[in-house]
Amino acid sequence: MLKLAVLVSGGGTNLQSIIDSIADGRITNAEIKVVISNNKNAYALERAAKAEIPAKALSPKDFTDREAFNDALLQALIDSEADLVVLAGCLVVIPPKIVEHFKNRIINIHPSLIPSFCGKDYYGLKVHEGVLNRGVKVTGATVHFVDDGTDTGPIILQKAVEVHQDDTPKSLQLRVMEEAEWVIMPRAIDLIANGKVKVEGGKALIEQ
């Protein structure tokens, strides 16, 4: 059974998709051991409570410096005995010490088709604003392993979503979540939980 630690910052829609996918069998051989939020007021914590999943808030504001927060976050992940760390709308920059400890065991969902509209300046609605400003016709979402860079780790799954001419950043964000994020994040977790993903030469390979 793959043990998951899910890191969140806000509403927790991706967390909910994981919870629902475990419940209905789209994700097999996996369980959520803990949900951790850097935001004490995140609705994601309520979602975890409703699903009777252990949850905690770890805010950088409660620590003397960022290093102390990073140490506490690493210890919380170790204490959870997580096999896989899932960044589900997590806005915390994961420090190198955590990336190294969980090498190829941290995954993230990004709301574009990497390598387009990704990197340190692209997060939240900024991604969809960038897509609309550029006028591309297709966007989507990407699940990837986390490495030392920003959105640069091996790509596991991607799913395309059509951009409509009358889209706003918010309407596009919602459609990308519904059509792509909530589909490929559970799928990626299921593949990993069942030993179907391996990293070779900087690429994620999926067993057919």
Rank of each mutant, 00 (worst) to 15 (best):
K3H: 13
L4H: 08
A5N: 01
V6R: 07
G10Q: 07
Q16K: 08
I18Q: 12
S21Y: 11
I22N: 14
E31S: 12
K33H: 08
N38P: 03
A42F: 02
A44C: 14
L45A: 10
A51V: 03
A55I: 01
K56R: 10
L58G: 07
T64F: 04
A68P: 04
N70R: 06
N70P: 00
D71T: 08
S80N: 05
E81S: 11
D83C: 07
L84P: 04
V85Y: 14
V85A: 14
G89C: 05
C90E: 00
L91V: 08
P95G: 11
P96Y: 08
K97P: 00
F102R: 14
K103R: 07
K103Q: 04
R105Y: 03
R105H: 11
N108C: 12
I109Q: 07
H110I: 13
L113F: 02
I114E: 03
K120C: 00
Y123D: 00
V127P: 02
V131E: 06
V136F: 00
K137N: 12
G140M: 05
G140E: 12
A141S: 15
F145V: 10
V146R: 12
D148Q: 08
D148I: 06
D148L: 12
P154T: 06
I156S: 10
I156H: 09
A160P: 05
D166A: 09
D167L: 02
K170V: 04
S171R: 01
E181H: 07
R187F: 00
A188C: 12
A188Y: 04
A193Q: 09
A193D: 09
N194K: 13
A204V: 02
I206L: 10
